[in-house]
Amino acid sequence: MASTISSPSPRWLGQITPWLVPVAILAAWQAAAQLGWLSTRILPAPSAVLAAAWTLAASGELLTHLKASFARAAIGFAIGGGIGFFFGLINGGYRLAENLFDTTLQMVRNVPHLALIPLVILWFGIGEEGKLFLVALGVFFPIYLNTFHGIRAVDASLVEMGRSYGLSGWSLFHHVILPGALPGILVGVRYALGFMWLTLIVAETISATSGIGYMAMNAREFLQTDIVVVAILLYAVLGKLADVAARLLERRLLRWNPAYAPA
């Protein structure tokens, strides 16, 4: 401790220090693969993964699969998130709706949605509908629960103030209730994005003719471990991108809140 205080290290050193360990692991991995200690069937060298990614990108195959996966994720999210948001709003806003729907929804919530896969295949076959259904179900509950609690957590004194200033109906919702519930709703969005990718991975590995999951399954058939690793990394990148997007959304929409202000 004392030495770091007495001799401050240069700025660039502090910036590269966190990357030393990952780079070392990558280097060791590369060396192990090239020296033959690590079978390429178990794990291909990082350079081979990169090369596979490059080949897939150059042939346009990668983009096709990315598009297919992204479209499924977006449509499923829009459907499930939209329905979840709707039920969150009415159940949070109206006691009657809560009494009518909440118990049912809570019961359904306790069923792991991936357990429905056999049934989903029977209902929808192996087409797109089943995958969208699973993704929609996966994102429904995080959005529903957090919207519901967000609405309930809106400061009642602000609602009273709004009413006494002549707001009612849509204007009260638009100016007071929705912005007040937004921190909660955005937490739900972030959870939902995580569930969205998780569900998509599983759904695409069941049976598909496009998408990143299909790409990985197909590569497995031909023992192309490098492509399998590319697919896994792609999921990681997509998940990270979704998280970054959610963070940006929070910073933009909640910029009034000191807790979300940029540091």
Partner: peptide
């Protein structure tokens, strides 16, 4: 009871 998500002038303009 100001709305924290609206600027000062927008709070005054409420309604």
């Amino acid at each position: 009871r100001l709305l924290p998500w609206r600027t000062v002038v927008d709070n005054v303009a409420l309604g």
